[in-house]
Amino acid sequence: MIIGLTGGIGSGKSTVARAFETLGAAWVDADDVAREIVLPDEPALLAIQHRFGDQIMHQDGTLNRAALRDIIFKDPEQRQWLESVTHPRIRERLLQHLARLKAQGAPYVLLVSPLLFESGQHALVHRTVVVDVPQALQLSRTQQRDGVSESQVRAILAAQLSREQRLAKADDVIDNSGDHASMMEQVARLDERYRRQLNY
């Protein structure tokens, strides 16, 4: 069974995924895979460099993600072009990772993705879990974690589904606005439910 785990920026998806991992689940993060496919010499990076030039490259030949983010969140057309290049490659690589993790014998595998619904990756999973927090908390956590401006966080939020839309699509919800113990309790409940379903 593959569980899709999603939530807006700053909702704590990775923290929740690690909590599931402590209970024996395996997980792959679409953000990690998105970084993987733009490593030096990867076809996606060559296409991105060809389109945007050296302004989005570091001296060492790696992608300057901040410079690219600055361009694509100001121009929806550029973002659509970037997604057309990266999303199919991310999907293909995710399938490889998921197959490998399933073969290793975890009871179920989490696909952690901020754009689970937007990118169509929800078609790869059997159930979806949304990690939910109020928008004010998303803003403060992301600014603190990434050292970015409020306007940049709001631009990223605007590119994602609204909180209401995401919750409407969820099979399960984890409220991550409380303390760590509350989150762990919710994860343990879902873990128990997923294992029960696997026994049928």
Rank of each mutant, 00 (worst) to 15 (best):
M1F: 09
I3H: 06
L5G: 00
L5M: 08
G7W: 05
G8W: 05
I9H: 05
G12F: 06
G12T: 04
S14T: 14
T15R: 04
V16H: 03
V16L: 00
A17T: 05
A19F: 10
E21V: 06
T22Y: 04
T22K: 15
T22L: 13
G24V: 13
G24E: 05
A26T: 02
W27Y: 13
V28E: 01
A30Y: 05
D31M: 11
I37Q: 05
V38T: 09
D41P: 01
L45Q: 00
L46F: 14
A47S: 12
I48W: 08
I48L: 15
Q49V: 11
F52T: 02
Q55I: 14
Q55R: 09
M57Q: 01
H58E: 12
Q59Y: 05
D60F: 02
D60C: 03
G61K: 12
T62P: 07
L63A: 07
N64Q: 04
R65K: 13
R69E: 11
R69L: 14
D70L: 09
I71G: 00
I71D: 03
I72Y: 04
F73C: 12
K74R: 15
R79S: 07
W81P: 00
L82W: 00
V85G: 06
V85T: 13
V85C: 05
T86L: 10
H87R: 08
P88R: 02
R91C: 11
R93G: 02
R93P: 01
R93H: 10
L94I: 15
L94P: 11
L95I: 12
Q96W: 02
L98C: 00
A99M: 15
K102T: 05
A103D: 06
G105C: 10
P107T: 07
V109F: 00
L110P: 03
L111W: 02
L111D: 03
S113C: 15
S113K: 02
L115V: 15
Q121L: 11
H122D: 14
A123D: 08
L124Y: 13
H126Y: 04
H126C: 13
R127W: 10
V133W: 10
Q135W: 01
L137I: 11
S140W: 05
T142N: 01
Q144D: 09
R145M: 09
R145K: 14
E150L: 13
V153F: 14
A155H: 08
A155Q: 15
L157I: 15
Q160A: 08
L161C: 09
S162N: 07
R163H: 05
E164S: 08
A168W: 10
K169M: 15
D171W: 12
D172P: 02
V173N: 08
I174E: 06
D175L: 15
D175C: 12
G178E: 10
H180F: 14
H180G: 05
H180T: 10
A181W: 11
S182T: 11
S182C: 07
M184W: 07
M184C: 15
A188I: 08
A188L: 10
L190A: 07
R193K: 09
Y194S: 04
Y194D: 07
Q197S: 10
L198Y: 04
Y200A: 14
Y200D: 13
